[in-house]
Nucleic acid binder design. Sequence first.
DNA 1: CACCAGGCAAGTA
DNA 2: TACTTGCATGGT
Length: 211
Amino acid sequence: MSSHLQDIYDTLLDTFGPQQWWPGDTPFEIMIGAVLTQNTAWTNVETAIDNLKAANMLSFEALATINVETLADLIRPSGYYNQKAARLKGLILYIADKHGNLQAFFDQETLALREELLSIKGIGPETADSISLYAAEKPTFVVDTYTHRIFSRHNLLAEESEYHEIQEMFMDELPKDMQLYNEYHALIVRLGKEYCKKTKPRCNECPIKDF
DNA sequence: CACCAGGCAAGTA
DNA sequence: TACTTGCATGGT
């Protein structure tokens, strides 16, 4: 049996074209965005990142020294701002303490980086894998709510599937290719936003309705 | 107006 | 282990 997942990818790429992800200029900005977008609309994250840029606070050094209340105020539009400010500070201070700089942190084996990310408070599986793939450019497949919703609605996954099972399904069936994982996840989010929202789905016009 | 968005951790039994 | 709840803004 041939790979449905590859066929679905081909269809999505055909339908939407390349998505040019992650929306962010630097690995650092991508890492910050990955935390800010937790359970939050991306438009709100953009406003928060704009605030950080306008305050000259979107750098490793700036966030290492900013106080958490000031940071919370700047990222307010992204929601959960007290939690996220603490999480960002924790992440930055961990990297500064343990590796000195971002590049050294990212210059690790893929699995070692993932383990370290998961050990940091506020970094769960999706955020860890997003940072690994889009900031550190490791071949890590990112699973999110859209991935779960889309593939379970199409009966390609059991509803009760957990994060690691879903990730394994993709990584076992597809080549371990960073660019492929990058584009695939971006296309899944695009498909989810347009055709597979929690309420008001448009399953009838879904580009992969026949899989 | 109620509900949702590119999660995660802490609390409960 | 398996659920539940808190965190919070801005758009539909």
